[in-house]
Amino acid sequence: MNPSCALEVNGLSIKFGDFTAVDDVSFCVRKGEIFGFLGANGAGKTTTIRMLCGLLVPTSGTATVGGLGFGDGGKGIKRIVGYMSQKFTLYNDLTVGENLDFAAGLRKLDPAYAKKRRKELFALTGFDRPLSTMVRALPGGIKQELALSAAMLHDPEIIFLDEPTSGVAPAARARFWDLIRKVTALGKTVIVTTHYMDEAEQCGRIALMRTGRLIALGSPEELKASAFPGPMAELDFNGPPPEGFISGLRKARGLLELSPHGMRWHAAFSGGTEMDSALAGLPAGASRALIKPSLEDVFIRLVEGKER
């Protein structure tokens, strides 16, 4: 095993009966990294994460998390990782203090240690409400910050966050990502799944998954460079594109990707000369501008493109 890896997966597959949820996946997550999983619903992100948290035993392949394998059915892994699942991880009908007490009880933490950790985590997250506050009275963003505190109460080195910001207001999402960076600044490794492209941009590296397979892995810049080796143009027709132009452009040599973005179109090409010849017939009144591809373009090209 590579010593710089917090966790390492080789040829991992997880099957439920005949259904292969995760298919021959290999990757390494470096210590202290923010590692993102990106993919549509049902792509296998949550299954992979649940396995890495020790909740599922892989059908084949090997996985080591924090140096531990699955010889004990995942119990050792459960002890050393923190996991914040997709849905509610706190009880709305308990107070903040009662929720944290229960989280400490689940992991048999010494009460004095749990209290010390609680104070540390409240300082980290900036939580300053009374312990007697009912969780249901907290705003969504604060609730998720508290859920992260509960998941980190036992001071895990590796923390898994499954769509931690779904249903959270944009300002609170930004706050939560600040918190994630603070956590990795402490030397912790964070593995996070998300649907939001702007969040994926903030990850150190991203694993792109589609129907159980890992189809791309790299930093946001690397993914953009490998998906779009040539230039990308944004076309603005100042209205609907002329009849037949788009269908003609689709047949152009060297076109990698053509997709509508609101009123405009993004067209990617394998090289500059291909772009120039394909766009030579651009109607009058239309304009083109060279742009840098976004992660959304990458996602469309790599994930949705293959489904066409």
């Binding site: 948290c53 020790g54 909740l55 119990k75 050792g76 459960k78 002890r79 996991y83 699942s85 997709q86 849905k87 509610f88 991880t89 706190l90 009880y91 709305n92 989280a103 689940l106 992991r107 509960a150 998941a151």
Partner: peptide, 13 residues
């Protein structure tokens, strides 16, 4: 239903 069960099973119990 709420998903809190996932947290319980993720503890080493």
């Amino acid at each position: 239903e709420m998903g809190t069960f996932e947290t319980i099973v993720s503890a080493p119990l």
